[in-house]
Design a protein around this nucleic acid. Structure first.
Lengths: 233, 233
DNA sequence: GATATAATTGTATAAAAAACAGTTATGGAG
DNA sequence: CTCCATAACTGTTTTTTATACAATTATATC
């Protein structure tokens, strides 16, 4: 077949906004960019979409390159295409965000990229329009987590309710009453109580829970409404 | 500056999913595609992103080309990039959806494209992956309309509460109690009651309302929750 | 054994959503 | 002119859900 003639062809990139949670605060994984322009500056992990791969495949490839992880939560966020967003050459970038269990992350793989986890509240200046990408990602996560149980993707298989609450409090930047939180989260039927406890955080220890995966997939579309004050989203 | 060498460049297109509401049902505006491949088949209105324009600009340009309208509600939906979605040449498409007041739509402008409004429930087969685009657009509209007052974009400046209710019932494919509906919608403070009535639909006539634009913008982020049964989203 | 720390549990109140039916205005038919 | 059919309009009760709030328990450590 003939090609579409006279049309502009351009570069298509993928940028990954990678979130983690260490039990205390939300974190963002950044790399030191290895080539010009902006070489040596903090940047999201990214790369160009190859001729033979889909955009989703490209995003997964790029995420794996940096983290060594496959099968993690990865969602297309938004496509950024201001003509001069990359001063070198017109490049449209499809941003994805990933939620990963920070414990599964293997440091060694990413040493090539000089990757580092930053507290989300203390991120360095990012290149190009990546600050805007990050802002949108934060917004989207809140939006989605208000109704869908995506935040479990940030926790290890076994987690405690206080851990889960801390995570929600981080994401929504608020405080939640402990009694009401556990009541609601248990009422979803998504959690299975285990017999052992996490003794790290307290003397008494908190019971571990794990996801009931059947209910998880069934209820993914309609989970609960956790936002204390939706005005701030 | 030098260019990024050895990277694949590709075509970037925009496709517009254009919704309207005639007071009875939701409708979708389609065109007969004017060039190969798939020439003559029903298609979303689309076009290629030019070298000098942003993707948003391209979407607005393409929407105006077909409808003559500017400044309408247009939101980026999702980017579709399967390698062979267009058999002619690799083309990545950024899908947008538009909500327009069907009364403002000017038929004459679109005659070049052989455009037609289809009932959303009776759309013809679409080309490429556009059926998937449409499904995602419907999903997104429901999702967003459940919390944000975007559906007003589909109505004329003056509208009645029964009209508004019909619209919500269409979008969510459900029925809502009249008393509860008007109670909730009036409680938002977004509506200003006018003195004249719409006599078209009934003998008694229904009062016209218009949006309180100040409240509209202020409350856009947090409107209300109209979904009767969130499970079906 | 005393103490400090964080986990765990329940109830009363307030707010929001859902269920539900009768009255009113008016154009058109007879 | 009266009657009738149609759709608009309005209010209360019940149920459900969310919120506010404090005492007890388990255990490591001193």
């Amino acid at each position: 077949m003939l090609k579409y003639s006279k049309q502009t062809r351009l570069l298509l990139a993928v940028d990954c906004i990678i979130f983690g949670f260490d039990g205390e605060v939300l974190k963002l994984l950044l790399i030191k960019r290895g080539f010009q322009p902006e070489k040596g500056n903090w940047s999201l992990m990214g790369g160009f979409v190859q001729g033979s791969e889909s955009i989703d495949q490209a995003a997964n490839r790029i995420l794996k390159q940096l983290t060594g992880l496959e099968g993690v939560y990865l969602e297309q966020l938004y496509t950024f295409g201001e003509p001069n967003r990359d001063p070198m050459e017109r490049t449209v970038s499809v941003a994805y965000f990933a939620l990963i269990d920070i414990q599964k992350y293997q440091t060694q793989i990413s040493s090539d990229y000089h990757a580092e986890w930053f507290q989300l509240k203390r991120t360095p200046k990012l290149i190009f329009d990546q600050q805007e990408m990050l802002e949108q990602a934060k917004k989207r996560i809140r939006y989605k987590a208000a109704m869908h149980p995506i935040l479990f993707e940030l926790l290890p298989t076994k987690f405690t309710i206080p851990q889960l609450q801390t995570l929600y409090e981080c994401v929504f930047n608020t405080t939640i009453d402990k009694r009401n939180f556990s009541k609601r989260v248990l009422a979803t039927g998504l959690l299975i109580k285990l017999t052992d406890k996490d003794k790290a955080g307290s003397k008494r220890g908190a019971y571990y829970y794990q996801l009931n995966m059947q209910n998880y997939y069934a209820k993914f579309q309609a989970f609960m409404n956790f936002i204390p004050n939706p005005d701030t989203l």
